[in-house]
């Protein structure tokens, strides 16, 4: 037993996921993504590459989008996590979810939860004035097609739904700005 705990140490981790507090004992090697999928049965966040190269695992950690496959759960003790399962308000879909359905912004759907969480992050980042690579220096970002394409580039979609994703995010951003 001593030998095992030396070789495979675990820790107690407290996480708040979609508003629900959890206290878990986890192998230190466990990523946030595997915590969600294998321990909490929240399989919305997807494993596409497991190396931060595709974005399918994107969730919001303390409100900011992040690749959950590269985060060790043990290092997130106390964090608040929002996954795609937590975007909707009960039966009422998040405006981004509605827009994705309307614009057919996915086909196989495997990248979709990551796209949605990433898009939620994009809306917040732009509202906070966070620049992207295409934002002119000295200007506040405006979520036009070019900005959305650049900001959503951390989420690969092999079905090629990008033009529809861009429209969905843009519609949501405009509707949000109009409110």
């Amino acid at each position: 037993m001593d030998d095992e705990s030396r070789r495979c140490p675990s820790s107690e981790v407290r996480l708040q996921v979609n508003g629900t507090p959890y206290r878990l004992r986890l192998d230190n090697r466990t990523t946030l993504l595997d915590t969600l999928r294998e321990h909490l049965d929240l399989t919305g966040a997807k494993k596409g590459c497991d190396h931060g190269q595709c974005g399918a695992c994107t969730v919001l950690v303390d409100g900011r989008r992040s690749n959950s496959c590269l985060l060790l759960a043990v290092a997130l003790d106390g964090a608040a996590v929002t996954t795609v399962e937590g975007l909707a308000d009960g039966e009422r879909l998040h405006p981004l979810q509605e827009a994705f359905l309307e614009h057919d912004a996915f086909q196989c759907g495997y990248c979709t939860p990551g796209q949605l969480c990433s898009a939620a992050g994009v809306l917040a980042e732009a509202a906070d004035g966070m620049p992207s690579a295409v934002t002119p220096v000295g200007e506040s970002p405006r979520l036009d097609g070019g900005e959305i394409r650049e900001r959503m580039s951390g989420n690969l979609c092999r079905c090629g739904a990008y033009p529809n994703i861009v429209r969905a995010v843009q519609d949501t951003a405009q509707a949000g700005a109009a409110r």
Partner: peptide, 21 residues
């Protein structure tokens, strides 16, 4: 028509292969 499983995919409830418990 919108795709019928769209809502399941957009809410993360659509389960793929190893996501089935």
């Amino acid at each position: 028509l919108r795709r019928v499983e769209g809502r399941a995919k957009a809410t993360g409830t659509a389960r793929y292969a190893v996501e089935h418990s």
